[in-house]
Amino acid sequence: MITDININLSQWPFRRLPLDETPELVEKLHRNGITQAWAGSFDGVLHRDVAGVNSRLANECGLHGEGILIPSGSVNPMLPDWQDDVRRCHEQHGMRSIRINPNYHGYKLNDPICDELFQQVVTHKLIVQLVLKMEDVRTHFPLMMVPTVDMTPLSDLIQRHPDVRLILMNNYNTLRGETLSKAAQAENVYFDISHAEQVGALEKITKSVPYEKLLFGSHAPFFYLEAALLKFKESELGETITRAIQFKNAERLLNEP
């Protein structure tokens, strides 16, 4: 039993990916023991008709998700009337989380708009999936080089919004030092493991982040799903920690009121 909190549907704008058709991706997830997957949409990174993106995402999860896909809608607070996208995610689509890409959408974590977004999220009791980057900045398309999200303001943001349940996605090497330790200590902040690197990566991460804060995430189909799965072969974590990262922590997070 595994809950993957980091997959995307639809197509990456810069190349076709092997599993960017939902039925094929779902089949692969099934085959590898993924019993629940929180799905965002690649379209949400660049498209401006975000309401359309989220409608398609919800429909796709319903049509092809075979009961394992949970949609996580995109919100871009730089667009007019973005508040209604938040409302629709919650009220119309019954979503439990939203996904945000501040670097692609053009705002910083210390911008007032980010505070307003986090207030809306609390109102609608949504989880925030904050994506720090989508791909290695060294391999971006030359006309579209997007820096990784600047995490310097994160500690203050968390302090101002302690009730927001926040997942830091694609975070490895972006969070370090005091910013990492403060985030790890915050009650409602979680980390996905999709980008965790070095030999024995999970053994190392559990030394700096409590295992109760770690969530299985693959970043599939952009990454090979096996990259996340094999991390559990490379690190010897024991059953309790493995189960916590693979599904217990996500289950607890999703069921929090």
């Binding site: 990454f223 090979y224 096996e226 990259a227 799965l229 094999l230 991390k231």
Partner: peptide, 12 residues
Amino acid sequence: RSYASQLAKVQG
């Protein structure tokens, strides 16, 4: 790098 992420390129 990890063995996991790099082996995944082939095994996946």
